[in-house]
Design a protein around this nucleic acid. Structure first.
Lengths: 328, 328
DNA sequence: CTGAAAGCGCTTACAG
DNA sequence: CTGAAAGCGCTTACAG
């Protein structure tokens, strides 16, 4: 059986209060006593029962992170930022399984308040659910998603601005026709990027042409297929703004296979600056955002919400920048 | 403030025992009372404080999963198997951050017994640490790694057999020289696969030639570079057994770029059967194992260890098979 | 069928 | 500087 505080007290011949003070580094006991207790605790391999501790202290000491899949390459740096910052704040970070729908660990941990705060990168929770669990005691930070409610904070990147800038650059480099490779309709990112694209057309008085909007789904494979299709139809695009980099990868592959020279015959800008984007031939120009910093920011907002009494921003928008490589 | 069982009791005008019975579906109270209590609980948005519950019940109800990175493509199906099975057993599944070394959430959760069992796909814990935390109350299942100790169970794939079979096939198809693309020295998988390779050579009385062992590191990029180097030196390999698929991807890329025809001029077999392996041109022949089933098995072993009194197998070895595609 | 009470393992005012 | 005791929110024998 696991030793309890009682066992340590008995073995060290002190009261359980003293053990508690020793373990928690209180300065109310003498150095000598503390060392003695700590020694005994170590000998018994004692560690405090967290359930008892948390019950007493009314805090959990953990932040939950929720993503659709535990394995999406995009998030890697973002999560690193989150991990480091949460650790720095002295909290634990746990990710909960979403398997099982409304009965999933993720749902239970949110409902049962098994965490002190949540960071969400997932659309597996609907807005109503999030609203029902968010509170001052369990604030939620949602990334790349707009959820307007008390105790829910949104951190977004400037999708609109990034798309606007990318499209603008394509147009101002002389392209009168800019194709837009589109992500899924229900993607928040895609919507905003499309808006930015349209706004840039408007800015330059270029007429919006629905035929230039290529419906795809954010995957390399589908974009590759769509691009090949277009090329086969005989009128290859001169300029493309791709709503994400993965699709841009597929576009490059199709272009290369068909002898279309980039950037001479086709200019291309992606979005996200994923790792692979600098390794393509030619290297992909793209819109970047600081993922690591986004993670850090998310944690900062979360802890302000947990601790501070003052109003904090409900929505934070992080800037984007164009990184010019060889496709434009 | 969150409502407690007291609040529900007061509001429902019953004792807290009755509330507890109602919430936990005990048949000791009348249907009528239960419904009434449940209604009040719902109205107050009550959910039991898990810390109190767990303290009382002396169980946690959660399994921990630990992987080096939350984002390694190999694990996806494996984790799906684990998620489904853990959920089926009525337990929660949480992944703990490894950031912070010995002070990480992962280490703390293991030490402090915040979980009832652990599944480990990581080399971030050394054997001694695992041995010190494993117990009947917190058994550990280690995947793809041999840790021999009480309460630690190993689930392995038949690396040796798979490598033996792959090499054997290459030799028996007429290749007298088979190169081995090597993973990192400290990789358990790599060691076993190398042993299988060597054994197959022995089986066919082919002399081991150290020049055919190409030191690489499991990555596409490095294998690509190494392969190019070899080709540039003028004596392109006729047959390669690659210790994993990612390296095989790099090998194919280098071969394709240098006009080496696969499988006519070069036969190649990889290991792991990652998703990309069927999409390469030509499609990669490889050694496969059932990742989803491995996840399920891991959970089964873990729960046996947690619940059953009888001896259970310390080591489980899962079979591998060769999937023939176009590179051989 | 229902309730009063003990106790899980801690922390922390309070007393000395 | 140390200890006795209350209490966190539950569950569960026990009594009625």
């Amino acid at each position: 059986m696991r030793p309890t505080i009682k066992d340590v007290a008995r073995e060290a011949k002190v009261s359980i209060s003293t053990v508690s003070y020793a373990i928690n580094n209180s300065d109310r006991i003498s150095e000598k006593t503390r060392n003695h207790v700590l020694e005994v605790a170590k000998k018994l391999n004692y560690s405090a029962n967290s359930n008892a501790k948390r019950l007493r202290q009314k805090n959990v000491g953990a932040i939950g992170i929720f993503f659709n899949s535990w394995f999406g390459p995009i998030y890697s740096e973002l999560v690193q930022g989150i991990e480091r910052k949460v650790h720095e704040m002295g909290y634990d970070l746990i990710a909960c399984s979403l398997f099982g729908g409304a009965e999933s660990t993720a749902h239970r941990y949110l409902k049962d308040h098994m965490i002190d705060g949540a960071i969400i990168l997932s659309n597996a929770f609907d807005d109503d659910f999030l609203k029902s669990v968010a509170s001052k005691d369990l604030p939620i930070v949602a990334l790349d998603r707009e959820v307007k409610a008390e105790h829910i904070y949104n951190i977004l990147i400037d999708n609109f601005g990034g798309a606007f800038g990318a499209t603008k650059q394509l147009i101002s480099s002389g392209c009168k026709q800019v194709h837009y490779f589109c992500g899924p309709d229900d993607s928040y990112d895609n919507q905003k990027r499309l808006e930015g694209y349209i706004a840039a057309l408007g800015f330059y008085n270029v007429k919006f042409d629905n035929n230039l909007i290529i419906k795809s789904d954010f995957t390399e494979e589908d974009a590759y297929l769509k691009m090949k299709e277009i090329i086969d139809q005989g009128d290859a695009p001169k300029a493309i703004f791709s709503a994400n980099d993965e699709m841009a990868l597929g576009i490059i592959r199709a272009a290369n296979e068909n002898g279309i020279k980039i950037p001479e015959q086709l200019k291309l800008i992606g979005f996200d600056n994923i790792r692979e984007s600098e390794r393509t031939t030619p290297a992909l120009s793209t819109v970047t955002h600081h993922k690591y910093e986004m993670g850090v920011k998310a944690v900062e907002v979360l802890f302000s919400a947990m601790n501070s009494e003052e109003e904090i921003e409900q929505v934070t928008i992080l800037p984007t920048q164009i990184v010019e490589r060889e496709t434009v």
